[in-house]
């Protein structure tokens, strides 16, 4: 699509309608294939069956969704507090940053799925799941915020010095606002990752985790060959992920629309 079409009102409506049409066509095709070829529902359930399962199993699934949401957002909240806090600490002294940053990197590059079984042994299962989700969401927030705090315009830093600003004033009035776009970028990545972390950790916890999140439902339903419920749980996870992404995209837009290049709307 051309830039001009994208900018116009008609273009924006198309941006919404086209993906919906593709989605509906794919679902209809899936439904048709399952019905025509008589594929048994314990292999591939039809979308209509997934939808009815979503409704009939809602009491069980909604409870699991709630558990997963709680883990995801608790982990994300902890990651924001820890990531931003540590980034501010890094900004105070290069020595602190040099001493601790490598460990944050080690935590990041080690796949969480490999750490999860250990954590399940050392911590009680709900805490272990929370810790895994925290670990994956923490790093993008830490690294982005650290970068943002260091990215304040050096002339503005000089100006603050000229007017005798304290370190605290420099942090509040200059470094934190300058870091906001970077932080929000980290939050969008971290939000998605904390959901992934919550799911992966619950699967890794397996039978040890008496938890009842969506991942546990998927594992359990697979054992029982209850494919419609597996798909229903997958739909809920996908919708949760999309909602988290849209929420943070909207938040970014609202906070940055007046000033940041990333949310600038160009007149073409």
């Amino acid at each position: 699509m051309s830039e001009a079409a994208r900018g116009s009102a008609g273009g924006r409506v198309l941006d919404v309608i086209l993906p919906i049409l593709v989605f509906l066509a794919a679902v209809a095709g899936w439904e048709a294939v399952v019905r025509i070829r008589n594929i048994p529902h314990y292999l591939v359930p039809a979308p209509s069956l997934v939808a009815t399962t979503l409704v009939s199993d809602w009491p069980t699934l909604s409870g699991s969704l709630w558990v997963t949401l709680k883990v995801t957002f608790s982990a994300l909240f902890a990651a924001v507090v820890g990531g931003v806090g540590l980034a501010i600490l890094f900004a105070q002294s290069r020595w602190i940053e040099r001493s601790f940053y490598p460990f944050a990197v080690i935590l990041q590059v080690t796949p969480v799925i490999a750490i999860a079984p250990l954590l399940v042994i050392y911590l009680d299962p709900p805490t272990a799941v929370l810790a895994c989700a925290f670990i994956v969401a923490f790093f993008p927030i830490l690294s982005n915020t650290t970068l943002g705090l260091a990215s304040a315009d050096h002339n503005l830093v000089d100006l603050f010095k000229l007017y005798g600003a304290s370190r605290w004033q420099q942090l509040i009035r200059l470094r934190l606002p300058a870091a906001l776009p970077y932080f929000l970028g980290g939050l969008r990545v971290g939000g998605g990752l904390s959901l992934i972390g919550a799911i992966v950790a619950e699967i890794a916890a397996g039978t040890a985790g008496q938890g009842s999140g969506l991942a546990f439902r998927i594992v359990e339903s697979t054992f029982r060959q209850n494919m419609p419920r597996v798909f229903a749980a997958l739909v809920l996870i996908a919708v949760t992920g999309i909602t988290i992404f849209l929420f943070f995209t909207l938040l970014t837009h609202l906070l940055l629309r007046h000033w940041h290049e990333s949310v600038r709307r160009r007149d073409t």
Binding site: N155, L159, G164, P177, W259
Partner: peptide, 25 residues
């Protein structure tokens, strides 16, 4: 002090940018 670039805080309105030296006091 005036720099080669305008060196304004992009997140602040014109009013708040000019307020800065007073605000820091």
């Amino acid at each position: 002090f005036v720099f080669q670039e305008p060196t304004l805080m992009p997140w602040a309105s014109v009013f708040n940018n000019v307020w800065l030296p007073l605000r820091l006091r």
